[in-house]
Nucleic acid binder design. Sequence first.
DNA 1: CAGGTGATGTTAATACTGTCAACATGAGGC
DNA 2: GCCTCATGTTGACAGTATTAACATCACCTG
Lengths: 219, 219
Amino acid sequence: MSEGRGGKAGYHHGDLRNALVDAASELARGGGPEAVVLREAARRVGVSPTAAYRHFANQADLLQAVKDEGQRRLADSMEEAIAETEPPPGGDPAAAAKARLMALGFGYVRFAVTEQGMYRTAFCRVGPDREKWTHEGGAAELRPGDARSFRLLVGAMDAIDAAGAMRPGSRTGAEFAAWSSVHGLAMLILDGPLHEVPPPQRDAIVTRTLTTILDGLTV
Amino acid sequence: MSEGRGGKAGYHHGDLRNALVDAASELARGGGPEAVVLREAARRVGVSPTAAYRHFANQADLLQAVKDEGQRRLADSMEEAIAETEPPPGGDPAAAAKARLMALGFGYVRFAVTEQGMYRTAFCRVGPDREKWTHEGGAAELRPGDARSFRLLVGAMDAIDAAGAMRPGSRTGAEFAAWSSVHGLAMLILDGPLHEVPPPQRDAIVTRTLTTILDGLTV
DNA sequence: CAGGTGATGTTAATACTGTCAACATGAGGC
DNA sequence: GCCTCATGTTGACAGTATTAACATCACCTG
């Protein structure tokens, strides 16, 4: 064989599921969730449309797989942003924790802007009719990948709190306030009034929004 | 004739465009933007599918009309929320301005929760291929209704600023920070991690998020 | 007031989509 | 070596948007 990551020999593909997710992800990258059409993904993989139904319950199920992939890449982007951040001089743990939170926000928005289609897909609504064997033996209620980016945020909040920089009474629900801001900001940039704003001013607004949240949460 | 708001006598309907928008809005109310399907709207009005093309360039154009309607209703909800708010005792203009901003936020979220489908439609992406005569003689670039809710927010911010309650340097971009929070919050509630949270706790989170923003913006 | 005409609706047809049922293939265990 | 079942294929059906060609009638014009 020798075909990297499962080859497609002949009649049997060997790795159809992943191939379909890849193709569908590419569609999503270009056109968002409404662009991930099952037949087109199958076409690109070079397989008949109905073959997809051996690996996905329906189109919604395929879309969910792409969505999970999007969430994964988003979390990656946020982790990268943290990794790129060097702690501010002075060794102040509070300042470091704040800087990390800001980095998370920038990483988030950067991904949203850079990978518009994928970002939109990562947060698209997926339709209810997707039960079936998708998870029937499945574990918990929560989707696994869905949470990683959110957990990063929670961790950053905990760090700020641990450094004693959190405003009294502000810890509970702080993740939601921060997440809301950043998610809404991304939407504003992608579809809303900030759509046409050139990058420099846009970045300034992002910075101001993030600092506003930080000011509201910390002392 | 005597048929309220333009009657449908026989062959010619008389008010098809509005009738279609109404029907489509009802679809959106129930199932969000993806539920507004041209043929179904026509079916409900009792007209042939292609009749719609005499009033809309295509399905995206119809969807845009529904979206505008959604924006209108959202702005109405926010104005109602302001109207229901009595200024806090003491006659402090800063406190009154802050209270009004909070009311706007609550009105916004209330609409999002109460009218999920319509809210989602009001902020859905509408697809590019919609030029044509939709606006060809049209005025400016900006959609008119799109802005009203946003202008309400700007006004509230100005009032806070005028009352001298704005934190130094926080005025610029303040609307975006506030709007982001509230919009992201609504999304979190509709589709995200806050989906299953019971109303009481949900309201608490909303309150905390709004106060966080307020704390970040004001002195 | 007759007659033409353009806005408004209708019918028929095309090209997509998702999805199911019936059939084909061949990889791997007995 | 054969048989079985996961995996792919073909064919068909329903639903959607959209266009072209045709029908009707409200209203302006002479």
